[in-house]
Write a protein that binds this DNA or RNA. Structure first.
Length: 442
RNA sequence: CGGGGCUUGGCGCAGUCUGGUAGCGCACCUGGUUUGGGACCAGGGGGUCGCAAGUUCGAAUCUUGCAGCCCCGACCA
């Protein structure tokens, strides 16, 4: 993509409303613009990141045997009255009336809708297990939206729902998702820790939050430092994950709602006790027959008798992850995108547009990298050199390739690792080779 | 929803106390000079001062009401 033809409105100064670093950088690097409190428009660069995260989430869900669907943002109040949550959910639910005065709502979550779909279309235990998910915008009318996309009112969430014949099968579904989540966050370049958590308004008796440690996090968490060292197995729905689940769930790791100081001190030696703040990026629940009983989601069992199915739900905050990743990966100059989610892999800076030799080398590099399937953001703007460097640092692509008249004359390209700041001058062929791989760690 | 703060050009702000018809920096546009890490010179465009009502000869400034946004707390992916 040529920056001269793209839309990346960068901002030099910090907008006064943005208090935390991810919010400031998302505005300054031209990823989002606020539309109302807790409601954002996603600009081209931000949308690319959102889509990349969605793609990774989708790939891991599919690998875990879940099937993608797409449910609407607007739902009829009727099914929420069936489950009893129309009243329970309170003011956080945005209620709407249509022209016929029918009650609608902008979905804050989708248990009712998915239960209705399964109820109406599944008759037999032979059609189970079933795990359906979608990636869709949600609306929760938060009392106080804040921190940019980290606590917006409208947010993009992957929410998945499992349906099984009995508790044992449902717990297996839960475990498959547990491991799929570990894999997903690992692929996103994040260390997300599963922590025993409260179940909130969804209900149920088994629940884990996936937390990224960060000072700006809203959750207080307590855990055993050994949890940082546990291995994450490759996802395969037929594999037995019990050892992994056992390892992660026996170590002390809880959010503050479930924290018990006495147990913490008994279970964890003093030098391994970690108390920290974290960002909740995922949450999984097993809620048994709560919705199926209330909404009549029953299937015939092997003996011919109807059984209310056992359910679980599994959420990943996709739009929140954009903010969380920036919180975890930035410096004074701007964002530093992890390779798997970066909007572009390489930023090419042409220091002297209009100079035939410089233009030629830059175009050559741009074409070669693009042919290799890499996404390049080519700063071909006819502008001052200085702002090109600062804009590119702010945008935070993993690699920068700088081409000026001096390098063009000698056929060399300066490449810079955004993470480490390391620079080296390489001839074209070697530069291409280097730029097509993720930069090493700092 | 309780407490606090803010609203003046795209962004950041001054001006409000003490009323006299709007200013600074950056950004933007034009021309020129520049080009190896946040250019320079000259010229230029852009604001019903959040909205409404009131006081006054006169309101960004004083009064009242309303709205929006931000921060602290209780709630959540």
């Amino acid at each position: 993509m040529r920056l001269s033809k793209y839309f990346v409105p960068t901002i030099k100064e910090n907008p006064s409303e943005a208090q935390i670093v991810s919010h400031r950088l998302m505005l300054r690097a031209g990823l989002v613009r606020q539309s109302a409190a807790g409601i954002y428009s996603w600009l081209p660069l931000g949308l690319r990141v959102l889509n990349k995260i969605s793609d990774i989430v989708r790939a891991e869900q599919n690998a875990a045997g879940a099937h993608e669907v797409l449910m609407p943002t607007l739902q009829p109040a009727e099914i929420w009255r069936e489950s009893g949550r129309y009243e329970d959910y309170g003011k956080e639910m945005l209620r709407i009336k249509d022209r016929h005065d029918r009650d609608l709502l902008y979905g804050p979550t989708n248990e009712e809708l998915i239960t209705q779909i399964v109820r109406d279309n599944i008759r037999s235990y032979r059609e189970l297990p079933l795990n359906l998910y979608h990636i869709q915008w949600k609306f929760r009318d938060e009392i106080r939206p804040r921190f940019g996309v980290m606590r917006g009112r409208e947010f993009l969430m992957k929410d998945g729902y499992s349906f099984d014949m009995d508790e044992a099968a449902a717990r297996r579904a839960y475990e498959i998702m547990f491991v799929a989540y570990l894999r997903t966050f690992e692929r996103l370049g994040l260390k997300a820790l599963p922590m025993a958590a409260d179940t909130g308004p969804i209900g149920g008796d088994l629940s884990h939050e996936f937390i990224i440690l960060a000072e700006t996090g809203e959750s207080e968490v307590f855990c055993d430092s050994h949890i940082f060292d546990l291995n994450i197995p490759a996802a395969d729905q037929n594999e037995d994950f019990s050892a992994t689940i056992e390892a992660f769930t026996t170590l002390y790791a809880r959010t503050d709602e479930r924290h018990d100081a006495a147990t913490f001190e008994t279970m964890v030696p003093a030098e391994r006790r970690v108390q920290a703040r974290g960002i909740e990026v995922g949450h999984i629940f097993y809620f048994g027959q709560k919705y199926s009983e209330r909404m009549g989601c029953r299937v015939a069992g092997p003996d011919g008798k109807d059984i209310a199915v056992h359910g679980g739900s599994y959420g990943i905050g996709v739009s929140r992850l954009v903010g969380a990743i920036i919180e975890a990966s930035h410096d004074e100059a701007g964002i530093i995108w992890p390779w798997p989610v970066t909007p572009f892999h390489v930023g090419i800076i042409n220091l002297k547009t209009g100079d035939a030799q410089t233009d030629a080398l830059a175009e050559q590099l741009y074409a070669a990298l693009t042919a290799l399937g890499l996404d390049c953001l080519y700063d071909d703007r006819d502008e001052r050199a200085g702002t090109k460097f600062s804009d590119m640092d702010l945008i935070g692509l993993p690699w920068q390739a700088v081409i000026g008249p001096r390098g063009a004359a000698s056929g060399e390209i300066e490449i810079k690792n955004r993470t480490s700041g390391e620079k080296q001058n390489l001839p074209l062929a070697e530069a291409i080779k280097c730029l097509s791989q993720p930069p090493g760690p700092a």
